[in-house]
Every structure is written in structure tokens, then in C-alpha cells.
Design a protein around this nucleic acid. Structure first.
Lengths: 186, 186
DNA sequence: TCACGGTGTTCGTCAAGTCGAACGGATCGG
DNA sequence: CCGATCCGTTCGACTTGACGAACACCGTGA
């Protein structure tokens, strides 16, 4: 897993990466985490060996799990309608479900549960290049996908589309519930 | 997940637990990790706030991933009920959903859509060690989790549980639909 | 009984992490 | 042009963690 990898440089890189991802300044992050910005500055510069408390508070302030700060980084619209079984099924022995997407070893996938209501057309700016979003509709209907070519999804429908271009989420029914898996490349 | 929990006590407990699991003495562990035994003694006593380097070398010496020393032991089943917003939401600019689970760089996550019907109690044998299953109920009700302590989930509920022990899926209503994310370590 | 090798503890010293303030730089507006 | 307000960096003073030695404790065997 993480073996004897040197955590020093990893932390420095992770801090800067996650901070920029959150879109906040060094000063602001230091304030939120309740640490001196000088400390944070040194950490991001690679000069450090922070205490657990310090790094922990940074993790909390960034909204990322602790382990993401210390473990090293590794590196068009596809729709599957409810009932349309894609050829592949799980080979995993005793399990029989529809395999919607296979994870990569070089990506990170976060799972979200999102409730949407009509009227609020949510425009999402591009995320980091290479990111992919997977959406499965649990309840209601949504129109989602790249801003250029959104698709309409009904319960059980699945769609995957690039997250690194502007894309939209729009509920077409009240109380719409979707499962969203966001995939970020390393 | 790890929230604002104080890591101090967690580390102390984790160190003692893992060390006893390895069956080595405090002195011996300190020697292997290349740190003073006094330091280790204080850490296990809960008095501390170790530097990352120190804790890292302990993790290496114990042969356990770093995160196991700082994150509280994962309960067999972690459930997030529909409507129960877990502390942190995505700060990702324009996105506001409930963050159910954060992906690791050292795991692969596959996304499944599963339809279940009552009566078929599905017992799943243990998968490869370290695998984790994430389930979000889209429609209907299911009873799932480790065979020892299953939980009942309703639409919108989320549960994560270890996949490396025997676990069950059971639909409690007809036409039950769940999104299942299977996570395999590398 | 007492010396021995092992356990984990406590204590003083030193190095290192953390802090707050002061600094140079960039941007904006009067 | 220059004051204001951010940004991130560097500096000295203080705090604290890491170290090693000395310590008390326990079981063993000569």
C-alpha cells in the first residue's frame, strides 16, 4: 500500500493540490484550520514534518480525509437505460448485478448523494481535466450531461460524462434523488 | 467518516492494538521503528501529538497502512440515513451534494446497479481482503450488511460495510433497486 | 537471596515544530 | 501616484516533541 514511501514531499504536494482544488488561499486555509499561515507555508514548501494535530486540522479544513494528505498520488456521454443490460456482468462469483462502470487504478472515486428540485438548473464549471462523472437516478427525472448535449434520465438510468467540460444538472420532477460518483484522475 | 474527531486517543489506542496484534514489545517496536521507546511509551499513553515522520515509521514497523493508525477503527457497518447530512459537503465550487464516501487512490471502485426481489436472501462469501461495499437504496427496502449485523435501508439511505466477511443482501419489497459500489484494494 | 535480562515508565536536555509579526510583492481604486 | 488589501514568504521567540539515561517492576535461575 504505502510502504516506505517518504511522506514529506507527498504531504507538501497534497496540501497544495487539495488547497487549490478547494480554491482557497493559503491564508484562508490557515485561518480555517486554526494554524499559523507561516506553518502552512513551510509545509507546502516541503520543509516540515507536521504534527498529527496540525495535519489533521488541515484535513478537516479542506474537507478531505486525513489519508489523502499523506498517501502518495497514483496518476462524451454514455447512457445505460434502465433495463438495458450491458453485456458485462460481474464475474465476482455470487453477485449478479449490472456492471455500469469499472474503476481505474489511477483514479479516485467519491460517492455523493444529491437531492435536486426543479427550477434550479445547476451549471457546473469544468473540474480538473480527465475527471468523469457517473450518475444513477434513484427517484424522479433529471436532465444532465455536458452543457452541449444533455440527456434525460429516469429512475434506474445511468450516465457517464466528462466532468472537465461545463455540464449541467437539472431536476425535472420534485424530490429528485440521484447517486453521483465523481471520478478524479491523479 | 473521520470528521473532527480528536486523533490523539485514536492513535494511542491504535498503536497499542496493532502492537499487541503483532505480538511485539514496546521496546522492540521502538527499536524497529527507530524511535526512542520513551516516545512510544508516551504515545501509547495518549500523551502526544506525534510528528508525521514518527507515526509513519511506526506504521512501517508495524506493517500497517498509515491511515489505520490515525483513523478510528471502521465500524462493521456505517450507515448514513436519508436526510442525515454528514458534516461535510462538497466545497467543490458549485456542487452541493452529500459526500457519502471518499475514494482512495489505492482502490478500484466498480459501479453496479442491482435489482432485487424479496425472498431471495443472497449470501455473499467474503471477497478479497480489504474490499468494501457501498450501497445506496434507490427504490424499495433492503436488509444488508455483514451477516452478523445486517441493517435495514430505505430509499436514500447509504451503508458501507466490509466485503471481506460474509455479508447479505435481501430485498424487503418487490422491485427494489440499489446502487452498489464495490471497492477492491490493489 | 541476589544477579540478570526483560518489561514499560519517568525525567532532564536538546532539537524542531508552531506561532505571531514584520516583510516584499501584486492588484485594485481613489 | 499612493494608500488599501489581499497574497505568500521570512524571521525571531516560544512551545513542544524526540531523545537517551536512569528508574521501578517482574519472572527466572544460579
Amino acid at each position: 500500500m504505502d510502504r516506505t514511501a517518504p511522506p514529506l514531499a507527498t504531504i507538501a504536494a497534497a496540501l497544495r493540490r487539495e488547497r487549490e482544488r478547494a480554491g482557497i488561499s493559503l491564508t484562508e486555509l490557515a485561518r480555517r484550520a486554526g494554524i499559523a499561515k507561516s506553518t502552512l507555508s513551510q509545509l507546502e514548501a516541503g520543509a516540515g514534518n507536521p504534527s498529527v494535530e496540525t495535519l489533521w486540522s488541515l484535513g478537516v479544513a479542506l474537507g478531505v480525509p486525513f489519508s489523502r494528505l499523506v498517501e502518495p498520488p497514483t496518476p462524451a456521454v454514455r447512457v445505460i437505460r434502465a433495463g438495458e443490460a450491458p453485456g458485462i456482468r460481474s464475474e465476482q462469483a455470487d453477485f449478479t448485478g449490472i456492471l455500469l462502470s469499472v474503476g481505474s487504478r489511477h483514479a479516485r472515486r467519491d460517492i455523493y448523494l444529491v437531492e435536486l428540485d426543479p427550477g434550479a438548473l445547476r451549471k457546473a464549471e469544468a473540474h480538473i481535466p480527465g475527471s468523469v462523472e457517473h450518475m444513477i437516478v434513484a427517484r424522479g427525472r433529471v436532465r444532465t450531461g455536458p452543457a452541449a448535449e444533455p440527456v434525460e434520465l429516469r429512475p434506474g438510468d445511468y450516465a457517464a460524462f466528462p466532468g472537465d467540460v461545463e455540464h449541467v444538472y437539472e431536476a425535472l420532477e420534485p424530490d429528485t434523488l440521484v447517486v453521483l460518483v465523481m471520478e478524479h484522475p491523479d
